[in-house]
């Protein structure tokens, strides 16, 4: 009787399979934000609005990059989709269902603390699919061990695809460099085959060369399997290189009735390697355009110019 119950439990959980769309050209809405506002109460009793009346439809297979100044609500938007935070007004749907809690519909790659420190690389990557396959009791069945064997092969292939060597598989995260850790984190999220992959400044703590190589790998991975990706970054070049769609957010001002979306544009695609694309004139022009739209002149720049102009002013007054 216990065995039957375990088998039944086993049947209710299945390893997530690759999602196959009936029509490959069909572009269903994967993430839908409808009139979403988010505000927090301040200590003074007033309300601080971070996102205001945001409407966004992200179609399946899009690589959406969210860019904007600090405090414009990029990470809040990501947390809303993830289910870590809830809108004060409006609704958020992912994969056709309302977001009410954090679940496996979204894969998540944060900037840091992405891996479980007590597990090796291989254990980290296998953790999700093992959970998806069975509960605690079903682990006693022989079918679990057969599944584990096939999963190990799949995980190894994914890790190698992300540039890890077999000697790294049994290392703990602290024994890996930051770039390697992020590669494992991406592999961990992708092996679950989530409908949506959320990346919160996932490459921002890395050095430029590691960052460039990871960008290329991410780009290749997306071109192969086309998952829906929502990628939050501060970096304009990264945004233009990786995304198929760019959303620039602006901080909400008190009394402003407009939404936070400053710019929502489709980005040109090309099959060239990112390092080559980065050097083209079109890329430079687009980058300058987006920078101009997205970022106000920082206070630092104003101050620097004032200091430069000061001797001239002194001379003029003399």
């Amino acid at each position: 009787m216990v065995l039957t119950a375990i088998r039944r439990a086993e049947k209710t959980r299945v390893m997530p399979r690759k999602r196959v769309r009936k029509n490959p050209h069909e572009a269903e809405t994967e993430i839908a934000l409808d009139n979403v506002s988010v505000s927090y109460p301040l200590a003074s009793g007033a309300q601080k609005t971070v996102l205001h009346r945001l409407n966004l439809d992200i179609r399946a297979g899009e690589f959406v990059v969210v860019l904007g100044e600090t405090g414009c609500g990029k990470s809040t938007l990501l947390r809303l989709v993830l289910g870590q935070e809830f809108p004060t007004e409006g609704t958020v749907d992912v994969d056709g269902k309302r977001v009410r809690r954090i679940d496996a519909r979204c894969g998540y790659v944060p900037q840091k603390y992405a891996l479980f420190p007590d597990r090796t690389v291989m254990q980290n990557v296998m953790y999700g699919p093992e959970n998806a396959f069975c509960g605690w009791t079903a682990r006693l069945l022989p079918s679990f061990w057969r599944f584990r064997k096939s999963l190990r092969a799949e995980a190894a292939a994914m890790l190698q695809r992300m540039g890890l060597r077999t000697t790294d598989f049994h290392k703990y995260p602290q024994q890996l460099s930051g770039g390697m850790q992020q590669r494992v984190a991406i592999a961990q999220a992708l092996l679950m085959r989530p409908p949506v992959l959320l990346m919160d400044e996932a490459f921002s703590a890395l050095d430029p060369s590691t960052r460039a190589s990871l960008q290329q790998q991410m780009h290749d991975l997306w071109q192969e399997s086309r998952p829906t990706i929502l990628f939050v970054t501060h970096n304009t070049s990264e945004a233009i290189l990786l995304g198929t769609r760019l959303i620039v957010l602006k901080p909400h001002q008190e009394g402003d009735q407009e939404s936070n979306v400053l710019l929502d544009m489709q980005l040109p695609q090309s099959s060239e390697p990112l390092s080559v694309r980065k050097k083209t004139r079109d890329f430079e022009q687009l980058r300058e355009h987006v920078k101009h739209c997205a970022f106000r002149e920082s206070d630092f720049e104003v101050e620097r110019r004032a200091v430069q102009e000061m001797p001239r002013r002194v001379e003029a007054s003399e």
Binding site: L82, C106, G107, K112, F116
Partner: peptide, 15 residues
């Protein structure tokens, strides 16, 4: 324990 770990675990279908 960093909040990211808990969030990550839930996205990996943990109860």
């Amino acid at each position: 324990v960093p909040r990211e770990q808990v969030v990550k675990a839930f996205t990996l279908q943990s109860s």
